[in-house]
């Protein structure tokens, strides 16, 4: 029982950045944009959050910087894919390459080639509401984890119960219909990208300001790509995306535990386990028709 609770606590912690990133990607994809810049956005916002926190001594300023980074990269994606109407795959991958390169380059400039990355003096601490009770380890979480869980129903509400969400989904399903109804398609897409980017920024901040308290090159390690897979797995619905994120987090926590227990398996196999299961589930859920119908399609007004 104790073991299970520890495992679930780990699950929530590990799920947090992936959940935040996947919710951001969900919002963006529901507006018809596939943002492959997600992986680079996570790294650069983790970095900018770290640098600002370190230089200013304020974790909150760092958090703000990370969110701002996410928003700006979202707007850049908007400029490339909405204004210039470039291929979204190319634009997104370009942003990932640019943002990753920028983060690593600036890291070198600021901290030289030191092999031991500088750490923050103090990182975000965890809440411990039920400390001392058996459930304590489950609830001992960072504030961002609670925020991420709260954002699941909030995102769902935004998408289905507000005028903004209605317009956003219309733009992602049939931008022409939205345009004819007087909705500014480009503006809605930019807003979705900024909002989604902010959530990705939070995810990056979680990595460097909370979980690790430091910055390292490989710290994102494919979480952005996993988030994209989870959006597909979750049928573009926040609640199902949560399910996917928790499953992935659980497998990750489990494999860490198995490694620690010294299970007689090569550790590479254990490392690969969550990813393999992700691929397997995606393959098994089969062809998915729930995707936003205007995904990947730049909008051209006819005759304009």
């Amino acid at each position: 029982m104790e073991l299970l609770i520890a495992l679930l606590g780990g699950t929530l912690r590990i799920s947090t950045p992936i959940l935040l990133a996947a919710l951001g990607e969900t919002i963006i994809e529901r507006a018809g944009i596939l943002n492959l810049g997600i992986e680079g956005t996570l790294l650069l916002s983790a970095f900018s959050g770290f640098v600002v926190a370190q230089l200013s001594g304020s974790l909150w300023l760092g958090l703000g910087a990370a969110v701002l980074t996410g928003v700006l990269l979202g707007l850049l994606m908007g400029f490339l894919s909405v204004t210039l109407k470039l291929n979204q795959h190319v634009a997104g991958l370009g942003i990932t390459l640019l943002a990753s390169g920028l983060a690593l380059y600036a890291f070198r400039l600021l901290y030289g080639g030191s092999s031991t990355p500088p750490a923050l003096e103090g990182s975000f601490t965890q809440f411990q509401p039920l400390h001392g009770t058996p459930l304590g380890p489950l609830f001992r979480q960072y504030g961002l984890t609670y925020l991420a869980l709260l954002l699941v129903p909030l995102t769902g509400w935004l998408l289905t119960r507000t005028a903004f969400g209605l317009r956003l989904r219309a733009v992602g399903e049939n931008p022409e219909a939205a345009d004819i109804a007087g909705v500014n398609v480009a503006a809605v897409r930019y807003r979705a990208l900024a909002l989604g980017g902010a959530l990705m920024g939070l995810a990056g901040a979680f990595l460097s300001l909370a979980q690790l308290g430091a910055f390292a090159h490989g710290m994102v390690s494919g979480r952005g790509w996993v988030a994209i897979a989870l959006v597909i797995f979750g049928h573009w619905q926040p609640s199902k995306v949560l399910g996917g994120a928790l499953l992935f987090g659980f497998l990750q926590a489990l494999q860490l535990r198995l490694q620690a227990e010294g299970v007689n398996l090569p550790y590479e196999a254990l490392l690969a386990l969550p990813y393999l299961v992700t691929i397997l589930i995606l393959a098994l859920t089969g062809r998915n028709t729930a995707y936003p119908k205007a995904l990947l399609k730049p909008y051209y007004r006819e005759g304009a």
Partner: peptide, 23 residues
């Protein structure tokens, strides 16, 4: 037709003139 097939009739009709931020 410029309709969103995954929306209800009402959602299609009010799109762009929802009248309030929360629906």
């Amino acid at each position: 037709f410029s309709l969103v097939p995954t929306f209800t009739v009402a959602e299609n009709v009010v799109l762009g003139r929802e009248g309030s931020a929360v629906l």
